[in-house]
Simulated assay, not measured.
Amino acid sequence: MSDSDTQRPDPLSIIPTDAPPAQLFVVLHGESANPAQVLQLVAALRQAFPSSAIIQPYGPFGAAEKRRWIVSSTPTAHQYVELIAQAGAALAQEITHWQQQHGVNGEQTAVVGFSEGAAVALEAVSTVPRLAGRALLFSTRFASLPEGIPHTVTLHLLHGGADTIAPASQAHQVHARLAELEGDVTLDIASNVGHELHAALIHQAVVRLQTCIPLRSWEDAQGAPDLRIDEYSANAPEDVGEPPPKTLH
Results as ranks from 00 to 15, higher is better:
Leu178Asn: 01
Val71Asp: 10
Gly183Ile: 02
Gln37Gly: 07
Pro9Glu: 05
His172Asp: 10
Ala44Leu: 03
Asp18Ser: 07
His78Trp: 14
Gln56Arg: 11
Leu45Asp: 00
Ala36Ser: 12
Ile15Arg: 04
Val206Asn: 01
Ala124Lys: 07
Gln93Glu: 14
Gly106His: 14
Arg228Ile: 11
Ile149Glu: 12
Arg228Ala: 07
Ser13Val: 15
Ala205Asp: 02
Pro60Leu: 13
Gly106Glu: 11
Val153Met: 03
Ala87Ile: 09
Ala36Arg: 11
Gln101Asp: 14
Ala179Cys: 15
Ala92His: 08
Pro167His: 04
Arg8Pro: 07
Asn34Glu: 11
Asp3Ala: 15
Pro35Asp: 07
Gly148Cys: 08
Phe61Thr: 11
Leu209Met: 06
Arg130Cys: 11
Ser139Cys: 12
Tyr80Trp: 03
Leu209Pro: 02
Pro35Gly: 08
Leu187Gly: 01
Pro146Tyr: 02
Gly117Ser: 01
Glu219Cys: 06
His249Gln: 13
Ala132Gln: 09
Gly88His: 07
Glu65Trp: 12
Pro60Gln: 15
Thr154Ala: 10
Ser2Met: 08
Gly183Thr: 02
Val128Asn: 06
Ser13His: 13
Ile15Phe: 04
Arg177Ser: 01
Phe138Ser: 05
Thr152Ala: 06
Asn235Ser: 13
Gly183Cys: 00
Val206His: 00
Glu65Asn: 15
Ile202Pro: 08
Phe114Asn: 00
Asn34Ser: 14
Leu248Trp: 07
His249Asp: 10
Ala176Gly: 04
Ala143Asp: 05
Gln37Pro: 05
Gln204Trp: 12
Thr154Val: 10
Ala176Lys: 15
Leu45Lys: 04
Leu137Lys: 03
Val26Ser: 09
Glu182Tyr: 13
Asp239Phe: 15
His203Pro: 00
His203Ile: 08
Val26Gly: 07
Asp184Gln: 00
Gly30Phe: 03
Ile70His: 10
Thr127Gln: 15
Leu209Phe: 04
Leu248Pro: 01
Trp69Cys: 08
Thr74Ala: 14
Ala19Ile: 03
Ala44Thr: 07
Asp10Met: 12
Gln101Tyr: 13
Pro245Ser: 02
Leu181His: 06
Ala43Thr: 10
Thr74Val: 13
Gly88Phe: 12
Ala36Thr: 12
Val153Leu: 06
Ala135Tyr: 06
Ser51Pro: 05
Ser139Glu: 10
Ala205Glu: 06
Ala179Asp: 06
Ile84Trp: 13
Pro237Glu: 00
Val185Phe: 04
Leu131Pro: 13
Glu242Trp: 15
Val240His: 12
